[in-house]
Design a protein around this nucleic acid. Structure first.
Length: 496
RNA sequence: GGGCCGUUAGCUCAGUCGGUAGAGCAUUGCACUUUUAAUGCAGUGGUCAUUGGUUCGAAUCCAAUACGGCCCA
């Protein structure tokens, strides 16, 4: 059976129409130029009366996709949608050149058309364009989803995002807001003197995070390479090189499962500032979060999954240990201070404790299990154990912990920052510990990065750095329950 | 990786106790010069995810597989 016969009849019919277009001229013309967008017309003429519009009779050229068609004999209404939104067009047989109206009647919903006409207001008050000329610019062969219910099937929305964007205003809003958030962050840092950098995504030694990497292969070099799990170590090399304020917004890759919070490739911003510490970055983070809300959402209150979060109030700050005790009134500080008693608490919570796990690791796991998802209000958690923070600077008073924070809101970690470890000998020691862990079977443990140590030996100025998960940040600000709703093309298993 | 749920027309969805497959929208034809989920009349459209099993008979019951969703790890 040929592909054509096999095809849906709706498609076959449209393909026939395309065949006729090919015979009569250029089937896919690209000589139409528009001079207006739907939303611009609404903004400029939305408040003008029908009489005023009729008097000025403003001429416009619009282009967009035909999204609705109402034919009433010798007159028709239709809606076209462009990147700014929709607007109605009105056509009368006698207002168009000979035969054009009949052509229009044969066009299909989904076709891309160009319209010339004048702005007016209909009897029912809708701002519209009365067409004086109309052209088919791109024939659409496949029928769009239904006009009223639209496209709701999650799988189709993710696999065929173009349909989702075409049909769902909410989806357009999410990705427009995502773009605005990224731009805001870029401007925010640029205004503060940060330089934007692009560091390798293919790395010989994957570093900067605890995660399993993807492996790829370079044929000419005969070399396995890893897709980066974080840009961190390269950005700090740039600080060594004198880029004292530097940032990067781009993809990292982690070879782990998929969920509503994890996509194998995800976008992070990391930024580093010399002569600053983790407290400076907490302040900066607070300013940034508040700024996004105020500038892009119009106020400091963010609604996420049915709850309101006021980013206008100062964010709560507490240490890992304080938070454990706060959320677990039955756990005593003394019991968290010794490995043995802490391990007993962990065991009681069903957390598996390995022989090699130190007190810091155990504390962190108790924190993750009993506190993280309850950190609803915007909160900085500080004082993470050095054991779980192999790149962070130790606290001056208490070397067991680091000068580090994570930022949580809505029960999710959005950011991780710390004063950077710039002692090359301590860093080398911690890499060696990671290598031991890796040898003992910890697949997420870090590699020893000798070049990074060499860079530190030249001297990394005292620096603070931070990473923010852009996808999760966008989830929060766009009220999206799944990371797939904020990634244009989320990872899916191949079809069939 | 585990548990639960889903997959029926292009889209959104019904489908009772196992008895030859339904609606709305879209689409086709006709009518209609201010409609907006246009309207009226008449049509077309199906590998019921896939494979196997049970049965006289399977969209429906059973099993496996694929893909997806939610929850858990």
């Amino acid at each position: 059976m040929s592909e054509l016969q096999d095809e849906n009849k709706l498609v076959a019919l449209r393909r026939e129409k395309l065949g006729k277009l090919r015979q009569t001229g250029v089937a896919f013309p690209n000589d139409f130029r528009r001079d207006a967008l739907a939303a611009e017309l609404r903004a400029r003429y939305g408040d003008e009366t029908a009489e005023a519009l009729e008097e000025t009779a403003v001429s416009v050229k619009l282009a967009g996709r035909l999204m609705g068609k109402r034919i009433m004999g010798k007159a028709s209404f239709a809606h076209i949608q462009d990147m700014s939104g929709r607007i109605q067009i009105f056509l009368q047989r006698d207002g168009l050149a000979e035969g054009v109206y009949e052509e229009f009647k044969s066009w299909d919903i989904g076709d891309v058309i160009g319209v010339e006409g004048t702005v007016f207001r209909t009897k029912t008050g809708e701002l519209s364009v009365k067409a004086s000329n109309i052209r088919l610019l791109t024939k659409s062969l496949r029928p769009l989803p239904e006009k009223f219910h639209g496209l709701t099937d999650a799988e189709t929305r993710y696999r065929q995002r173009y349909l989702d964007l075409l049909m769902n205003e909410e989806s357009r809003r999410v990705f427009q807001l995502r773009s605005a958030i990224v731009r805001y962050i870029r401007d925010f840092l640029s205004e503060r003197g940060f330089i934007e950098a692009e560091t390798p995504m293919m790395q010989v030694i994957p570093g900067g995070a605890r995660a399993k990497p993807f492996v790829t292969h370079h044929n000419a070099l005969g070399l396995d390479l890893y897709l980066r799990i974080a840009p961190e170590l390269y950005l700090k090399r740039l600080v060594v090189g004198g880029f004292e304020k530097v940032f990067e917004i781009n993809r990292s890759f982690r070879n782990e499962g998929l969920s509503t919070r994890h996509n194998p490739e995800f976008t992070m911003i990391e930024f580093y500032q010399a002569y600053a510490d983790y407290r400076d970055l907490m302040d900066l983070t607070e300013t940034l979060m508040r700024g996004i809300a105020q500038n892009l959402l119009g106020g400091t209150v963010v609604t996420h999954q049915g709850k309101d979060y006021d980013l206008g109030r100062p964010f709560r700050r507490m240490t890992v240990l304080e938070s454990i005790i706060h959320y677990n009134p039955d756990i005593r500080a003394e019991d968290l201070a010794e490995r043995e008693s802490a391990a007993a608490i962990a065991a009681g919570l069903g957390i598996p404790v390995a022989a090699g796990d130190g007190l810091g690791k155990i504390q962190t796991e108790i924190f993750e299990k009993t506190v993280e998802d309850r950190l609803d209000e915007p909160t900085f958690i500080t004082a993470y154990p050095a054991e779980v923070s192999p790149l962070a600077r130790r606290n001056d008073e208490n070397p067991f912990i680091t000068d580090r924070f994570e930022f949580f809101v809505g029960g999710r970690e959005l950011a991780n920052g710390f004063s950077e470890l710039n002692d090359p000998e301590d860093q080398a020691e911690r890499f060696r510990k990671q290598v031991e862990d890796k040898a003992a079977g910890d697949e997420e443990a870090m590699h020893y990065d000798a070049d990074y140590i060499r860079a530190l030996e030249y001297g990394l100025p005292p620096t603070a750095g931070e990473g923010i998960g852009i996808d999760r940040l966008v989830m929060f600000f766009t009220d999206s329950p799944s990371i797939r709703d904020v990634i244009l093309f989320p990872h899916m298993r191949p079809e069939s």
